[in-house]
């Protein structure tokens, strides 16, 4: 449900906070979330992202989550400032300032840099989720739009509007990534919920059209079997097909267990490739060169002293 949101900040406009009087110059719109818009702004401290909300209660609820996260994790700054701004319509809108994350969506990144980046990006994303799970949070609204990828597959989660304390009802979700929508479980926040969405994200990256086609069916027929069939038909997903089935079935305890399994999967292929390419004579040669090195070091030390 998109709520009509009339507030528009124009490029070059200067926003001044009502309470703290900090000034921000608007550069451009970065994106639109379920309960607000995110702009790139310039402040004294440099480039930042400004999220302005429609509803003060909704946005504050999101801010509270960010503040709780920040208390647990001193290494990362989630929030720079919270304030209100005066819109052109004379109404006050709540906003907060956060770190600006440079990056593109996973699909854009893979289009540009090639699909061989997919396993690493997946692993990095699982790592990000694992950090949240360790602290008792579930990301909730995991989807392609909410993940940004920077150089060398570095991953950042954006839009924390869905982040939910474990055990509560997921605050915000997107149907096609939602476990409940696929009749595969509850809508309560547990780590497996994120892993389900992660699996959906992988399918979405590879087979968006077929996946959308499945959502048109009757709700009673929607099931993980349908999804598993789709995974089985997709070549790009073949290396992780087993992993995805486990994630859809809720078989990983949390993202760190999922990440471990994902890593093993990739590592196994690496080692297989390596061992096939290292012939016995090369190992022998290596041993010989080690001995030679030992002797020369010995001579070197002797002649030096």
């Amino acid at each position: 449900m998109t709520t009509s949101f009339k507030l528009n900040l124009r490029r070059g406009a200067v926003v001044t906070g009502k309470w703290k009087h900090s000034r921000y110059r608007v550069e451009r719109l970065l994106g639109e979330g379920a309960n607000g818009k995110v702009y790139l702004v310039h402040a004294d401290r440099g480039w930042c992202a400004l999220k302005v909300g429609i509803d003060a209660i909704d946005l504050q609820s999101e801010i509270n989550v960010l503040q709780a996260l920040e208390k647990q994790d001193r290494k990362q700054t989630y929030l720079y400032e919270v304030d209100d701004l005066l819109g052109e319509d004379g109404k006050e809108y709540p906003f907060y300032i956060m770190r600006y994350v440079r990056g593109v969506t996973i699909s854009d990144f893979l289009d540009k840099n090639g699909p061989e980046w997919f396993p690493l990006i997946g692993l990095n994303l699982l790592g990000k989720l694992a950090e949240l799970h360790r602290r008792g949070w579930v990301f909730g609204d995991l989807k392609i739009d909410n993940v940004l990828v920077a150089d060398y597959g570095y991953v950042e989660l954006v839009d924390y509007g869905g982040v939910t304390a474990m055990g509560k009802g997921i605050r915000q979700f997107t149907e096609i990534y939602d476990r409940g929508f696929w009749n595969a479980g509850t809508r309560s926040a547990d780590a497996r919920y994120d892993l389900f969405s992660f699996a959906m994200l992988c399918i979405m990256l590879h087979e968006p059209k077929k996946l959308h086609a499945l959502t048109g069916g009757l709700p009673q027929i929607r099931s993980t079997e349908e999804l598993e069939r789709l995974i089985g038909e997709c070549k790009g997903l073949a290396p992780v097909a087993g992993w995805l089935r486990q994630a859809l079935g809720g078989q990983f305890f949390d993202a760190s267990e999922g990440a471990e399994a994902w890593r093993r999967l990739l590592h196994r292929r690496d080692t297989r490739v390596k061992s096939a390419k290292t012939p016995g004579w090369l190992k022998g040669l290596a041993a010989v060169s080690a001995v030679v090195l030992g002797i020369s070091v010995y001579w070197l030390l002797r002649s030096g002293i």
């Binding site: 509560k168 409940g180 309560s188």
Partner: peptide
């Protein structure tokens, strides 16, 4: 209605 029930069941 089924979907609503699912969301409500997730409440505490």
């Amino acid at each position: 209605i089924h979907d609503l029930m699912l969301s409500l069941q997730a409440r505490q």
